[in-house]
Nucleic acid binder design. Structure first.
Length: 229
DNA sequence: AACGCGACCAACATGCCTAG
DNA sequence: CTAGGCATGTTGGTCGCGTT
């Protein structure tokens, strides 16, 4: 099932920093799906980038061409949620470590069944912890917090319409803690939505450009030389 | 004591978007 | 056109814990 890539490994295995990607291809240096300006799109011809990290997405591809899974707290399954990432392919660069994003290939991202309760509890504590604390704190955790808050009030699972209605109000359910969230996932009341990531191509020219540019970039930013990129 | 690892915390800047 | 706010985050530091 992995996509076969015919590119010499000393080119294929060269990873880059987000700072470098921001400067050469645009987008902010944090987002998983950074928005790319028209200007940068015109310049590079690329605007579909995806930068998963392995803590929140332990099933991200780690080897170019390999398939993977992308997780998201959508409050409902990927099949039920609004259509995202349906058109076109994405250049996936997985964060393998600090300053270490590696191009995996061109990926199609398609809805799948949500993570089961068992699949959640089998995950590493660091992964579950990360999701719980982020969902408690971040704006994008609001749907999950709302569902948990409503479940408490109603003594039953809220409908999607009820969740949507609640997000129209000022109530952001910030009193729902990371521990509350963690318990809700442990009980299977909340589940992470899942998308499959399938490699359908590999942009050799893109990777060759990265290698060529990163060499110059690192040389100019780290004149000492002995800095991993 | 030293070391490695993970958890945790706070600082961080820049491109992009939206409101005016 | 400009100003301000936002971004499923990254980074580097500290701390606690268990191992060497």
């Amino acid at each position: 099932e992995p996509y076969a890539i015919a590119l010499e490994s000393d080119v294929k295995d060269v990873s880059v920093r987000r700072d470098f990607m921001r400067i050469h291809y645009g987008g902010n240096h944090q987002s998983t799906f950074p928005a790319i300006s028209e200007e940068n799109y015109t310049k590079t011809g690329h605007r579909n980038f995806m930068y998963p990290n392995l803590v929140q997405n332990p099933e991200s591809p780690m080897i170019p061409g390999a398939p993977g899974l992308f997780l998201n707290a959508a409050g409902r399954s990927a099949r039920e949620s609004e259509v995202k990432w349906a058109s076109g392919t994405y250049k996936v660069l997985t964060r393998l470590g600090t300053h270490d994003f590696l191009y995996m290939g061109e990926y199609e991202i398609r809805p799948a069944d949500s993570l089961t309760r068992a699949e959640w509890t089998d995950q590493a504590p660091a992964m579950r912890n990360r999701w719980s604390t982020k969902l408690a704190k971040k704006d994008w955790g609001r749907i999950t917090r709302t569902r948990i808050g409503l479940r408490r009030q109603l003594k039953r699972n809220p409908t999607w319409a009820e969740v949507e209605a609640a997000t129209e109000t000022a109530q952001k359910f910030t009193y729902i803690t990371a521990s509350d969230i963690s318990k809700a996932f442990d009980k299977g009341e909340e589940r992470l939505a899942v998308w499959t990531m399938k490699c359908v191509g590999y942009d050799e020219q893109f990777q060759r450009d990265l290698v060529r540019q990163i060499t110059d970039w690192v040389a100019s930013h780290f004149p000492g030389g002995a800095v991993a990129f």
